[in-house]
Amino acid sequence: MKTQIPLLICLVAGLFMGLQYFIPAALPVYNRVNDYIQVVTAFSLVLGVVNLIHRHIGRMRPSGPQRRRHRDWPFSLAALVGLVVMLFAGFGTQRGPIFQSLFNSILLPVQSTMFALLAFYLASAAFRAFRVRSVDAVVLLVSAVVVMVGRLDDGGALGIPWLSRQILNGPNLVAKRAIILGVGLGMAATALKVVLGLERSYLGSGKE
């Protein structure tokens, strides 16, 4: 029963979503289902936040035979303080100046910094990876350099921006489309397996 009911729900929902794609008359039901998804999404966030609070409070509480806090408890405290402050700033001021100011002066720079780290990782990864070990590697290296210069305002006289576009729109796109085709079929097959209950590892044990 524990597995059969979820499988039945999955089968019915999967078949409906598959069929509605071909049946205009099913659109109102489909729109209603979409509304339900919004509600489920909102509630799921509560689930995540509860787990977050539970986990971080657990880390801050002394536990174990020596009644010690987890070694990372200051991070947990920072996470909880951040959660509470943003929550009250958001609800308390109706997205007013405090919320916007916290957003602009803390969240925005912190997140931009995280994304900016990519440039550093990219530089070190390129330095390590682009070595002329084989013919394939040479092709990869030359393409990478051409595309990098092609993203700039230079190289027009040498036709590098044109060459860069040719690489991106030619061989690059051909390979991508081949992968997309495979991925699309893989997704469809996986969806079919899940709907028909052939694939049930995601339910836990996968056995009755």
Binding site: V40, T41, S44, L45, V46, L47, G48, V49, N51, S201, Y202, L203, G204, S205, G206, K207
Partner: peptide, 19 residues
């Protein structure tokens, strides 16, 4: 990262350990 994936992942790992 996703609050819906989280309980599913928890259940999958738990069941795997039981099995």
């Amino acid at each position: 990262r996703d609050p819906i994936v989280f309980p599913v992942a928890q259940d999958v790992v738990k069941e795997a350990f039981i099995e």
